[in-house]
Design a binder for these strands. Structure first.
Length: 516
RNA sequence: GGGUCGUUAGCUCAGCUGGUAGAGCAGCGGACUUUUAAUCCGUUGGUCGGGAGUUCGAAUCUCCCACGACCUACCA
């Protein structure tokens, strides 16, 4: 790090850097720009950092964009701006340019009689992509565009690599994901998408703060990866000489905090799952998990509903969004339906409640649909599989599915009236699971039994089954208050809010294989 | 994992049934003092993703590999 820093500084200061060995992918355009940089260095250019701007493009437009030309002229508004040169139009003794900062764009007008011939001549040789600063007075062109009549301008940072074409921009999805910096420069929609993402997270945090939840951070490196059924990433701690896992969920740690008296707690952070990659799955993804003592899953369902509604409103200013051509309304109450009812609703024929609880019946129907399952799978696993096969894709509008089989919900409290079913819900939108929550299992002896069953499945070859977590059971033995909790998939929520078809569109740097 | 499609200049794309690789933008040189994807004249730029094969001759046909997209199966 230190070494690298020193080297970078030397390069920046040394004119000899222009002779440095060029990278493999250098072409003529880059060579020409390096030559320009070398010449600029001879003239004293040193990547200056003492330029102070006093205006942003968007603010200037908001303040003066509507003003009449002569009114603007009479006010003689001075401004100093800085940003990246995105367009350049040279016309002899005068030139135009478009400078982009993080708020937007503003046009500049550079001419011999305003800056002097030399400065204008220098500008003509700057490149699209260069970062510049400019001072001047605002005016309106003949066509009414707000423009800065430049009296002084400086090159602040030289761009050696050409930007994509001004009209089509960068459209190649692979390059947009691999070189997100270019995507962000070129594509307004990409900038908007990530701005929405930030506002969603901010909106969630604001809401939680006003309802007195405490935000915490729990371990990403865990000796026993718990809280979900998923394959973990493994890593190694050298000093301790022990294997650790990247967390698949923060759940068990957050509930330890509830045992410790933090009764309203949440975390927004990354989870890591060593599983497939798809338009809906990235190996690391962002999850919000929340727990509230002295409530049950019905409270948590309502909280999730309100949170999502609030996130939409604060990030987008509306609760109605269009996703891939379909309208989703987060403003009206989310539907609530039990898993059994949902299966019956979407089943091709009438199935009785008894049939839906008959393992052999379910196994037969799954086979009819060509679904493979483990011979040892119980009623609950088959019931869930049938739900996933028949129902999930149909749940377009926000819908809570409640009453999951306890067998597939090893951390959920059972119903008193039916111990085969858990007080658990999942929220589906556009066929995707967006949230998952339940009344937490706070009976340490039941939890121990469930872990034993998971350990048995793991021994039998189920790589996603949970580990027995002795330390967690011991925490429960001190007494976990009746508690409900939920997890919300932030990436997927942002996909819905931004009409993004792929999770890679809402993650700055999605995982990609290395370029060969 | 399986299937389909794609990869040509810095970017966006043409390139037919095999016959010396093209355009626009960007770049470079020139003209132009209110342009708007500025315009006009001239011009540079390519290991056609990589490798092997068929052929007198391959961007083009065949095979293998890499990367990506979409569909499909699974975890959120």
């Amino acid at each position: 790090m230190q070494e690298g820093k020193k080297r970078a500084q030397n390069e920046a200061n040394a004119p000899a850097a222009a002779e440095a060995a060029p990278a493999q992918d250098e072409n003529k355009i880059i060579a020409e720009r390096r030559a320009k940089l070398a010449k600029l260095r001879e003239e004293g250019f040193s990547y200056p950092n003492d330029f102070a701007r006093d205006q942003m493009a968007e603010k200037l437009d908001a303040a003066y964009g509507e003003l009449a030309a002569d009114e603007l002229e009479s006010r003689q508004v001075k401004a100093t701006i800085a940003g990246r040169l995105m367009l350049k139009r040279v016309m002899g003794k005068a030139s135009f340019g478009v400078v982009q900062d993080h708020t937007g764009r503003i046009q500049i007008y550079v001419s011999d009689d305003q800056t002097g011939k030399d400065q204008h001549a220098a500008y003509k040789h700057w490149d699209i992509g260069d970062i510049i600063g400019a001072s001047g007075v605002l005016f309106k062109t003949r066509t009414g565009e707000l423009t800065l009549r430049v009296t002084a301008l400086r090159l602040l940072s030289k761009s050696l690599r050409p930007l994509p074409e001004k009209w089509h921009g960068l459209t190649d999805v692979e390059q947009r994901y691999r070189q997100r910096h270019i995507d962000l420069l070129m594509n307004e929609h990409s900038r908007w998408t990530f701005a929405v993402r930030s506002r969603v997270v901010q909106g969630l945090r604001d809401f939680m703060a006003t309802t007195n939840y405490l935000e915490v951070e729990t371990p990403m490196l865990q000796p026993i990866p718990g809280g979900a059924t998923a394959r973990p990433f493994r890593t190694h701690h050298n000093a301790l000489d022990m294997d650790l896992y990247l967390r698949i969920a923060p759940e068990l740690y957050l509930k330890r905090l509830v045992v410790g008296g933090i009764e309203k707690v949440y975390e927004i952070n990354r989870n890591f799952r060593n599983e497939g990659i798809s338009t809906k799955h990235n190996p690391e993804f962002t999850m919000m998990e929340v727990y509230c003592a002295y409530t049950n899953f019905t409270y948590m369902m309502s909280l999730v509903e309100v949170l999502i509604r609030h996130a939409a409103q604060s990030a987008l200013g509306t609760t109605s969004v269009t996703y891939q051509g379909r309208t989703l309304d987060f403003g009206k109450p989310f539907a609530r339906i039990s898993m059994s009812e949902a299966i019956r609703k979407y089943a091709p024929e009438y199935w009785s409640n008894a049939q839906l609880h008959d393992r052999h019946f379910l196994a037969g129907k799954l086979t009819e649909h060509g679904v493979e399952f483990d011979a040892g799978a119980g009623w609950g696993a088959l019931h869930l599989m049938l739900f996933e096969t028949l129902v999930e894709k149909n749940l377009v509008e926000p819908t809570f599915i409640v009453d999951f089989p306890a067998e597939v919900s090893p951390l959920s409290r059972r119903y008193d009236r039916n111990p085969e079913v858990a007080e658990r819900f999942e929220l589906f939108i556009d066929g995707k699971e967006i949230a998952n929550g339940f009344s937490e299992l706070n009976d340490p002896e039941d939890q121990a039994a469930r872990f034993r069953e998971q350990a048995r499945l793991k021994d039998a070859g189920d790589q996603e089954a949970m580990y027995y977590d002795d330390d967690y059971v011991r925490a429960l033995e001190y007494g976990l208050p009746p508690t409900s909790g939920a997890g919300i998939g932030i990436d997927r929520l942002v996909m819905l809010f931004t009409d993004s078809p792929s999770i890679r569109d809402v993650i700055y740097f999605p995982h990609m294989r290395p370029e060969s």
